[in-house]
Simulated assay, not measured.
Amino acid sequence: MTEATDAALAPTPRATISVFLADDNVIVREGVRALLARANDITVVGVADDLDSLISGAVLHTPDVVVSDIRMPPNFQSEGIEGCKEIRKRLPGTGVVILSQFDDPDYAIALLSGGAAGYAYLLKDRIAEGDQLLAAIRSVATGGSMLDPSIVDAMVRPAVRNSGLDPDEERLLEMLAAGRTLKAIALTRQTTAAAVSADVEKLFSRLADSASAGTQGALRRLRMLHEAIVSREEQGESLSRLLPGGVAEQLIAGGKALGESERLDVTVVMSDIRGYTTIAEHADPSSLVRQLNRHRAEMNRAILGCGGTVMQYIGDAVMAVFGAPQASR
């Protein structure tokens, strides 16, 4: 690494979170920008008003966090969610806050089903209340997650109505609805993930026994979210995230099965940050996470820009390969 890179990664007394903002409604966009301007630790580095400018702008500015509307041009469907997931592929570690006027839990489930870490889902009409948006940005910048309390309530309240759950069981259900993993819940409850899994299954069984026709939908959403979380923890990630960039797409497009092999001449690059251990020992943890995310984003952009494939990140180390999955010409 260069001296300039070392200096950029050295601990700073006060880290600023860079934010890229996307919303097709200029009034909402500028209102959110004004709200963020009140925070001394947050800086808006760019704005967008549609899907294409969201992705291209985020890749250009490499922000710590992207704050995006859920529906934007060209189709006004779920461009915000899809665009932010694409940004996460190109810029690993980027935090995402989705702003929505829809309190339908299905949107939140669609967002969290690909991995809850670093994602937040908030309702637009509540972002001015207290410091909810600022708290969400600070949380996802360091890998945390957040769901609007009304979304959690929309999933939990119908399911527990007349169910006779005790406060501890309701709290467990709320943590599930908030997208918490079994391991995270186990840490909070000071037990094991296996014990939490057993408690959850008992809870769902009890809710199913007492569910009426009006609560089936809420119970279905909770079960979907829980199954997505369990699937991620057991399998790691979906195929496209488990395998390095391009490998999953090649397997799908070529009709190849996992286990098939191919002989290629490749170049492998391994890189880490000089003096990282010393830097980490003296850095504020939150600042360190943001600095490491920026480093990974820059490395990711450089490797992809030269036709390489990022294999994995290990702490400050990056492993990449050139010449695979597509052979070099």
Rank of each mutant, 00 (worst) to 15 (best):
L225S: 05
D148Q: 06
L147F: 13
V200P: 04
F102N: 13
G259T: 09
V318Y: 01
S271P: 00
T94R: 03
D52L: 12
D6K: 14
L187K: 13
Q101N: 14
R301S: 14
N75W: 02
D104M: 04
D69E: 14
I229S: 11
T309C: 15
V196A: 09
R33C: 05
L111S: 09
G118V: 04
I151C: 05
Q312N: 14
I273S: 10
D153H: 11
V200C: 10
Q312D: 12
S240W: 11
T191A: 12
G80V: 07
A320K: 01
A228R: 08
D284W: 00
V47C: 13
V66G: 06
G214N: 13
S238V: 11
R274D: 12
D106S: 14
I109G: 08
P158F: 05
V310G: 01
A15W: 00
R126S: 12
A154Q: 11
V266S: 12
G315A: 07
V140I: 12
I252F: 11
T5F: 09
G130I: 02
S261F: 10
L182I: 07
A283P: 07
A117T: 04
S238P: 00
T181L: 08
D316N: 07
Q77I: 07
G179Y: 02
G93P: 02
A211F: 01
L242V: 06
A198W: 00
R71Y: 01
M1I: 08
G179L: 03
A120E: 08
E170K: 11
A7H: 08
K85V: 01
V310L: 15
S286C: 04
G31Y: 00
I252P: 01
A184G: 10
A154C: 04
H295M: 05
V96I: 15
L147Q: 11
P325I: 03
L35T: 03
R263P: 00
D6A: 14
A34T: 12
Q235A: 13
D50N: 15
L99K: 07
G305L: 10
D6T: 12
M72E: 05
E201S: 14
R220E: 15
Q235G: 07
D104P: 02
R126L: 10
P11A: 09
